[in-house]
């Protein structure tokens, strides 16, 4: 079991109840779509996975460790076991493709030789060979998201978290990005992906968790849903 949520409730300081008594489990190697309208609590759920937010009530375990009771100094180590992909890519504009990926490895203390080898590996994996020295501004949206994914998997995370990774991309590019994520999942990385895009989800045939007003309203496989 990789992730366990027990009766998790989150009430923000302004009184908004973003999650309401959510309990669920995610196994190692699963691919999960997190669906629901805006304001349903998807972002809060995702932020709790990498402990940007902590629950008001309830418990969250990752690899059997409570991340609610976790000390602040232990949070960096938790996050090193995860990779995050953002809707707006969040690439550093003044760094090249290779530097953006190397940066993520440098941050967690990797050595220079390891960084060089791994950077070239993940660039190949996401299909950006030849673009190592381009700056994000010189790339298309789809290419930028590939850099975002390469950066997220550079440190070999157990869990890949993707928040609307194809939200800013056209359908064809979105399909390519999804293919890349499935590919990464097939190699053993657990993936949790929040999305609005029903089409992508239907094609995937994966587990779908639907949130509405902070509650889990359905948790099933895509085939069952149809």
């Amino acid at each position: 079991m990789l992730v366990q949520f027990y009766n998790v409730t989150k009430v923000y300081r302004n009184g908004v109840k973003a999650l309401n008594d959510v309990s669920l489990k995610i196994d190692r190697g699963e691919f999960i779509f997190l669906m629901g309208p805006s304001g349903a609590g998807k972002s809060t759920f995702i932020k709790m996975l990498f402990r940007e937010e902590v629950p008001t009530q309830g418990q969250i375990f990752i690899s059997s460790r409570s991340i609610v009771r976790m000390k602040r100094s232990e949070v960096p180590h938790l996050r090193r076991s995860m990779g995050v992909v953002f809707q707006d890519f969040k690439l550093l504009e003044n760094k090249t493709v290779a530097e953006n990926i190397a940066f993520a490895m440098k941050v967690v203390g990797a050595g220079n030789r390891e960084i060089a080898a791994r950077t070239s590996d993940v660039i190949n994996l996401v299909g950006l060979k030849g673009k190592e020295n381009s700056f994000p501004g010189q790339l298309s949206g789809g290419e930028q998201q590939r850099v975002g994914i390469a950066r997220a998997i550079a440190n070999r995370p157990l869990l890949l978290i993707a928040d609307e990774p194809s939200g800013n991309l056209d359908m064809a590019t979105a399909d390519e990005i999804m293919e890349l994520l499935y590919n990464i999942n097939r190699k053993g990385t657990t993936v949790v992906m929040a999305t609005h895009a029903r089409e992508l989800v239907k094609k995937g045939g994966k587990r779908i968790i639907t949130l509405e007003a902070g509650r889990v309203v359905s948790d099933m496989c895509a085939l069952e849903q149809q």
Partner: peptide, 16 residues
Amino acid sequence: RKEIYLMKLIGATDWF
């Protein structure tokens, strides 16, 4: 701030 946020999410310690 974007860079700092990113570093923290990747798992940088405060001192890093």
